[in-house]
Amino acid sequence: EEWMVEKALMVRTGLGARQIESYRQGAWIEGVHFKRVSPSGESTLRGTTWYNYPEINKFIR
């Protein structure tokens, strides 16, 4: 699984929702560690946020 939603990321990493938000707003790079995608497939600020687990795992190492 490369891309996953927040709940799956929480299960895989043990991070809480606030921790994920903090990383997203600070250290993680949009387009690398996470992306927002609307149902139409376009990038957007209001779409579902998807997280790239392999890239996040590399960051944590």
Rank of each mutant, 00 (worst) to 15 (best):
E6N: 03
E55W: 03
R61T: 13
R61D: 08
S38Q: 12
G41V: 08
G47I: 12
I56V: 08
V5Q: 15
V5E: 15
F34Y: 12
P39W: 09
Y51K: 01
G26K: 10
K58I: 08
K58H: 07
W3A: 00
R46Y: 13
L9D: 00
I29L: 07
R36C: 15
T13F: 05
V5K: 12
E30A: 05
V37C: 12
T44V: 09
V37F: 08
A17V: 10
N52F: 06
F34K: 01
G14L: 04
K7L: 10
R18P: 08
S43R: 06
R12F: 07
R12K: 12
A8V: 12
T13L: 07
V5H: 11
G41S: 10
E55R: 05
Y23H: 05
N52V: 02
I56G: 00
H33Q: 03
S38Y: 14
E21V: 06
W3L: 01
E2N: 08
E42A: 09
Y23L: 10
H33W: 02
R46W: 13
V5G: 14
S22R: 12
G14S: 05
I29N: 04
Y51A: 00
G41A: 09
F34A: 01
A17Y: 08
T49P: 05
L45I: 12
N57P: 00
G14W: 03
R36F: 15
H33E: 02
E6D: 05
W50A: 04
K7T: 13
M10F: 04
S22K: 13
S38K: 09
N52E: 01
I29D: 04
V11G: 07
V32P: 01
M10N: 03
W28C: 02
R36Q: 14
R18N: 11
Y53C: 04
R36E: 13
A8P: 04
R46H: 14
Y53A: 04
G47D: 13
R36Y: 15
W50E: 05
V32I: 12
W50T: 04
T44M: 11
T44N: 13
M10Y: 04
I29W: 03
H33L: 02
M4L: 11
L15M: 07
R18K: 14
P39G: 12
E55S: 05
T44E: 14
Y53S: 02
T48L: 11
N52H: 06
T48A: 09
M10T: 06
N52T: 01
E6M: 15
M4Q: 03
S22E: 15
P39F: 11
T44S: 13
E6G: 06
M4K: 00
V5R: 13
I56S: 01
L15K: 00
G47T: 13
Y51V: 00
N52C: 05
E30R: 04
E2F: 08
P54S: 11
S38E: 12
M4Y: 04
V32T: 06
R18W: 13
R46T: 14
L15C: 04
E2P: 06
E6Y: 07
I56M: 00
V11Y: 11
A27D: 09
I20D: 01
I56H: 00
S22I: 15
G31C: 06
S40I: 12
G16H: 11
S38N: 11
E1H: 08
Q25K: 13
F34P: 01
E30V: 05
Q19E: 14
E6P: 04
F34E: 01
W28S: 00
M10Q: 07
I29Y: 04
V5T: 15
E1A: 10
T13R: 01
R12A: 14
R18M: 11
R46E: 15
T13I: 05
I29R: 06
G16L: 13
Y51T: 00
I56T: 00
P54Q: 10
R24A: 06
R61M: 15
W3T: 01
F59V: 04
Y23A: 04
R24D: 02
G14K: 05
A17K: 14
V11T: 09
K58Y: 06
R24I: 13
A8K: 07
S22Q: 14
K35D: 03
L9V: 04
W3H: 01
V5F: 07
E1R: 07
R24C: 12
L15G: 01
R36L: 15
L45H: 12
Y53Q: 03
R61F: 10
V37L: 09
Q19R: 05
T44Q: 12
Q25T: 12
A8S: 08
W28V: 01
W3V: 00
N52D: 02
A27R: 07
R12D: 02
V32Q: 06
R61Y: 09
P54A: 11
Q19P: 02
E42Q: 10
I29A: 05
E21K: 11
L15Y: 03
F34L: 02
T49F: 15
G31I: 03
E2I: 14
Y51N: 00
R36T: 15
V37D: 12
T48E: 15
I20W: 02
V11F: 11
L45N: 13
T44R: 07
I60W: 04
V32F: 07
E2Y: 08
E2H: 08
G26H: 14
R36I: 15
R18V: 10
G41L: 08
V11C: 14
V32K: 07
V11S: 11
G41P: 10
E42I: 08
R36A: 08
E21T: 06
I60Y: 04
G16D: 15
W50D: 02
N57W: 14
S38P: 13
M10D: 02
S43G: 12
F34V: 03
W50Y: 14
R18F: 10
T48Q: 12
E6C: 12
G47Q: 11
L45F: 07
E55N: 06
Q19M: 08
G41Y: 07
Q25F: 07
Y53K: 02
I60C: 06
I20G: 01
E1V: 09
E21Q: 10
Y53I: 05
G47K: 08
L9K: 01
L45S: 13
G14Y: 03
P54N: 10
W50F: 12
G26A: 09
I20P: 00
E1T: 09
E55Y: 03
R24E: 08
V11N: 11
N57D: 15
V11M: 14
Y23I: 02
L9S: 01
W50Q: 05
L9T: 02
I29T: 10
E42D: 13
Y23M: 08
R12E: 05
G31E: 05
M10C: 06
I60E: 03
Y23R: 02
S40R: 07
R12S: 06
F59L: 06
P39D: 14
H33N: 01
R24Q: 08
L45C: 11
